[in-house]
Structure formats: structure tokens, C-alpha cells
Simulated assay, not measured.
Amino acid sequence: MKITVFEQDSAFDTLKSEWNELLHRSASDLIFCTWEWQSTWWRTYQAGDLCIVTCRDENDRLVGIAPWFIHHLDSERVLRTIGCVDVTDYLDIIADKNHLEDVQRCFAHFLYEHHDRYDRINLCNIPEQSPTCVSFPQALRALGFKADLVLQEVCPVIHLPDNWEAYLESLDKKQRHEIRRKLRRAEAEAKLDHIVVSAEHDIDKMIDQFIQLMRASHPQKAKFLEDPKNLAFFKNLLPLMFERNWLRLSFLYVNDVLTAAYCDFDYNDHTQVYNSGLIPTENAHLSPGIVLLSYNIRDAIARKKTVFDFLRGNEVYKYRMGAQDTRVFMLRARLHGDLPEPKVDSVLAPVE
């Protein structure tokens, strides 16, 4: 196979026409691995030295993309996946399913032959069902690397049934009662308007409204948005997701007051809950966040989605809505020396 290394931002323009087509042929067809996400993240954060590695077969067809960069810390150079770690929930090597092992061996050989460019490897946010969790550490070990997988975090998901009533019946009796009670109370005591942004709306205005609610919902989110790069990432990414029909931006108005919002992604047959916003002081007794979330789950079922994915984090409300954990891992490797002990002993925080 032919290996090519791209070290300039122009790589994204060069690979644009082939990137997503390969992604659809891979076992890693994730919204976070799309050309749109990856290019936006890189152009926003510029987090190190770009190192995108591609593989082509004997017919010059693109069969593999390793979207990597080298992050320079004070005392070492760490090879990471574009998107690591905070604003991206799943990441992976992109490899044609029919060439998976060959591609991963090629990428492992590249890392071996160019080990002088970095000190260690940290590939974050790999979903547990990815072939990378098994085959890539094996390919690295075959070349003398020390490699392991560290449980990084959990992504609770709901496997959606065919109808809303079946979903409610799948819940614990207490939680089923709570959801029904909160919906009845809110709908009886207030005028509710559930809006999903569509082509008839001013998308830029609606994104600004969402960011305002996100900022108001929690001090940590407000602090996150104080970073100009984080704010720029949202403002650059969300219109692009909307253009591709991947963005599901929903709002709940309570008595004509904008109160709650969710930023979800629709990709393949999954709905993914990326972020949320809430005015905590507005109609809190009516549980507007849970009401809107319930509407969105019901809407996903009606649109024949099979998975409602809360993405990373083990917040209690996700389990109350019926979610069950899936896991994401970090692949750590180095050619010389021992791997450091993980810096955390919990799945609640990323491993550096």
C-alpha cells in the first residue's frame, strides 16, 4: 500500500472529495470523524503539528486515514487524534472494512518508522465496538511497542423501541411515573411550544440563542465559552452541521419565554445529545429540561432512530431516562520505555 503524510492545512482540501466516502465504507462511520468535524476542529484549535497519514491500495483508491497531530507538551511530544479530547466524543482510525488489517498494519509501520517524531501515543475516545480496540494494539505490539487500552469514560445510550409507550414501559416504574407526571404538569400549567430549527429559521440567530442558553445553564459552561476558540468552534461547526442535515437544534418555550434548548446530532440512525442550555430560574418547577428531553426522545422514536446517545459523561439524569453505559477507551503506546500509570482511577475523567 502507498502511504502519504500530510502536514499542512491544505490536506483537508486535498482529501475532501474522498474523506466521507471512505468513512461510509469504514467501521468508524461517526459524525466526529467526518471531514466537516475534523477540518473544523483543526482549523479552530491548531493544536500542534498536523500529521494526517493516508493509505491507498494498488488502484490508488483511498482505503485509510489516520487523522493525527503531534501535541507539544513541556517535556514530551504526544501523538493524538484530531479532536482530542474535550469537544469530541468518539474518534477512530478510518479504514475501509475490506482492508482493515492491512491499513492498520501500514499505520503501525508508519509509527514505527517515524518514532523519532513523537515520544508517546495517546489516541482518545475510541468506542468499545471499534475494531481498533483489538487490532491496532496488536499491530503495534508486533513491532515492539508497548500498548494498552485505558477505560476513559462512558457514553450512556438508549436503544429505542418502535413507539413511545414501549419506551416508557422499558423504564423503571418510578422513573416512568416521574416522566409522565412531569409532562402532565407542564402541559396542564403552561403553554408549551416545542420548536426544532428548520430551513424556515435564521440558523445563525438560533445558534446564538442556543449559545446564550448554554452559557446561562451552568458556570462551567459559561467559563468554557469564555475561551474564544471554544466559542468559534461552536459558531463554525453548527452551521456546517445544519447544511448537512445533521443538526437537530430544539427549543422549549414556556408561556412564550425561551427556557430550554438541546443541540443534538442526527447521523445515520442515531440521535446524539451534544449539549444543552437552560434558564435555571425560569419555570424550574415545571422541569423544562426534562420535558424538552422527553419530547426529543419521543421525536427520535417517531423518526425511526434506533439509538439515543447521550455521549460522554455519567450524569444521573441519563440513567433516569433509561440509558445504559457503553464505553470509550484511550489507546496508549510507546516504543521505548514504560507506559505511565493512568493519572485517574475513575472513568469520569480523561486520561492525559
Rank of each mutant, 00 (worst) to 15 (best):
Y45N: 10
R332L: 09
F265K: 02
K305N: 04
F210M: 01
V254Y: 03
R312W: 13
E169A: 15
H270L: 12
E282C: 02
E21L: 09
D86M: 10
K174D: 01
P137I: 12
V291Y: 04
P67F: 04
L231W: 11
L100G: 08
P350R: 11
K305I: 03
Y45L: 11
W41N: 01
R185T: 03
R320L: 06
S294H: 12
I195D: 04
M1F: 08
E18P: 08
W246N: 05
I52P: 07
T88E: 13
R77W: 04
L62C: 08
T14D: 12
K173E: 10
T44K: 07
L213Q: 03
Q129H: 04
N296K: 12
V103P: 05
R184W: 01
P340S: 04
V150M: 07
F6I: 10
P239M: 12
S198K: 03
K191Y: 01
E36G: 01
I195V: 03
A142L: 07
W35C: 06
Y267F: 15
I121C: 07
N98W: 09
V87M: 14
M241P: 00
F136Y: 10
T271Q: 14
Q104F: 02
K2E: 13
D9G: 01
S294D: 12
E315C: 12
E178P: 07
I82E: 13
G277E: 05
C263Y: 08
D116M: 00
R184V: 02
L123K: 09
K174Y: 05
D204F: 10
Q212V: 00
R334F: 03
V328H: 10
L79C: 06
K318Y: 00
G322H: 02
N163W: 14
H270R: 14
Y262W: 09
L213G: 05
R77K: 04
R56P: 12
K318C: 07
W42L: 13
A166Y: 14
T40N: 09
E18L: 13
A260Y: 02
T271N: 14
P340N: 05
T326M: 02
L238D: 01
S10I: 15
Y118S: 11
H336T: 14
L23R: 03
L258C: 06
W19H: 04
C55P: 08
I3K: 00
Y253W: 07
F210L: 05
D193Y: 10
V87H: 15
N268D: 09
L143A: 06
L100S: 09
T259P: 03
A166V: 14
W35F: 04
Q152Y: 15
L73S: 07
K97G: 01
N283W: 05
A108V: 01
E189P: 02
V344P: 03
R184E: 03
N125F: 11
E243F: 00
R244Q: 15
W164V: 15
N296C: 10
N230I: 04
I203M: 10
R80M: 07
F32I: 10
D299T: 13
N125K: 15
E341G: 00
R185C: 04
L15S: 08
S130F: 02
N314T: 13
D266R: 04
K304G: 03
D89S: 13
N255E: 11
R43T: 11
E187G: 06
S287F: 08
L237I: 09
K2W: 08
L293Y: 13
F265C: 13
Y262D: 03
F107N: 00
L278F: 10
P340E: 00
